[in-house]
């Protein structure tokens, strides 16, 4: 479904992502892990169209989307849950979801999807008319994911969903990711918590200094010496 080949992202003089290759099949969960500054978020940004790649190709079902504007990529079925959640704080939960579903053509579609999301996230039904900024961190993360799902994406990009959340809340978020995986959604997950990421993903790519250091089935990587020493604390 998604194939990234020889992707490079450059900020000024710094090459944040350097000739990165990986592919993601339909229905798969791929984890993109690595240390801070390894180029994970830049890779996601390039796929979602927020960052213009300096080189390489990003193919979505065969079509090169590298360098297209973010709004066009979103309309092709790619939804990004950005790092730090970035929900619209002054807008209500309802309005946040409404914008997430802006790509829907008909009011009936939108209504149906909204109902599905409120069933999946009962907490959002409770706070439907509350301002997004008044929700707790975990609730905001749920809202950010629900907002992305509103568009019925084919590919969900999750950027650091566990960042800044309490342990029980992280569990709830990953239970949800597990649930989405079982529903058949294709997910590209960027996560600093490597053990959690390798648990939920089938395949993983380890980035270091902007380049691919390791790649393979998640279970295998979890047992590799390099990953254990560098990311799992021995």
């Amino acid at each position: 479904m998604l194939s990234v080949s020889s992707l490079s992202v450059v900020y000024g003089e710094v090459e944040a992502v350097s000739r990165v290759d990986f592919a993601l099949e339909k229905g798969q969960v791929l984890a993109l892990v690595g240390a801070n500054g390894a180029g994970k978020s830049s890779t996601l940004g390039a796929i979602a169209g927020l960052v213009r790649p300096a080189g390489g190709a990003i193919r979505l079902d065969g079509r090169d989307i590298a360098g297209l504007p973010a709004e066009q990529i979103a309309r092709m079925g790619v939804a990004l849950v950005p790092e730090g959640r970035r929900i619209f704080q002054s807008l209500t939960v309802a309005e946040n979801l409404r914008l997430g579903g802006a790509v829907h053509q008909s009011a009936a579609d939108l209504k149906e999807r909204m109902a599905e999301m409120l069933d999946l996230f009962p907490i959002l039904r409770r706070y439907f008319q509350n301002k997004g900024g008044n929700l707790s961190g975990g609730e905001q993360q749920m809202l950010a994911i629900a907002r992305a799902l509103m568009s019925r994406p084919r590919l969900l990009l999750l950027d650091e969903p566990s960042l800044g959340l309490a342990p029980q809340v992280i569990d709830a978020v990953f239970d949800l990711i597990e649930q989405l995986k079982h529903s058949g959604l294709t997910i590209l997950l960027v996560e600093q918590n490597v053990s959690l990421a390798l648990d939920v993903a089938e395949h993983a790519v380890v980035l270091a200094n902007g380049a691919v250091a390791l790649t393979g089935p998640a279970a295998e990587l979890a047992n590799s010496d390099l990953v254990r020493q560098a990311y799992l604390g021995g």
Binding site: A70, A74, L80, P82
Partner: peptide, 10 residues
């Protein structure tokens, strides 16, 4: 940026 991520043209 996030508005654009929702598919709304800048």
């Amino acid at each position: 940026a996030v508005v654009r991520l929702m598919g709304i043209p800048a």
